[in-house]
């Protein structure tokens, strides 16, 4: 258990201090750097307080609709059609050992490989389900990094934010 105030509060206070008191004192060529830092802090605060934008349940349901999941390494058409270089990246391999995050990354890799190979193109329901995952993931990421861009594209805030 950490002491209070929490991480989000500290970041919020620091951001206000930066924008309200320090930025007006900066020469014009550095003022935009203050705003850049404030934006980075805002994104970091949002990322800290939200779940991963990857919806693990949705990915599991897409790839493993039945109780016994597909063995690791099998994609839509049997063996994962791993593209050159995929899966051999040490950073990727390290991540794949990180519990749920590793599982989500692994399933996401599988989805990417299947999309690369057009695996769903002959099955409209699978294709629609894959697209739904993509929409959900992209919207969740933008809610963290640029909700204004989402709003400008006609996609409003999540229920909890409205």
């Amino acid at each position: 258990m950490r002491d209070l105030p929490g991480t989000a509060d500290l970041l919020g206070l620091a951001r206000r201090l930066l924008l309200d008191e320090l930025a007006p004192l900066l020469p014009p060529e550095h003022e935009r750097h203050a705003h850049l830092i404030a934006t980075a802090m805002t994104i970091a605060a949002r990322e800290l307080r939200s779940e991963s934008p990857l919806d693990l349940q949705m990915l599991r349901a897409f790839f493993c609709p039945h109780p016994s999941p597909l063995p690791e390494g099998e994609g839509e058409h049997g063996q994962i059609p791993s593209p050159p270089g995929r899966g051999r990246d040490p950073r990727r391999q390290a991540r794949e050992g990180e519990g749920q995050s590793g599982e989500a990354d692994s399933l996401l890799s599988r989805l990417a490989a299947d999309l690369r190979n057009g695996a769903f193109e002959t099955t409209p329901s699978r294709e629609a389900a894959a697209r739904a995952i993509l929409w959900r993931m992209v919207i969740a990421k933008l809610r963290e990094t640029n909700p204004q861009f989402l709003a400008a594209n006609g996609i409003g805030p999540a229920e909890s934010e409205s």
Partner: peptide, 30 residues
Amino acid sequence: AFIGRRATESELELLMLLDPEGAPPDRCHA
């Protein structure tokens, strides 16, 4: 360092260009 996050904006536009029917209605709760 964080311009890479803007790639997701292009990804949203790709979805809008390639799957316009899949766009959630306004205030969709993704």
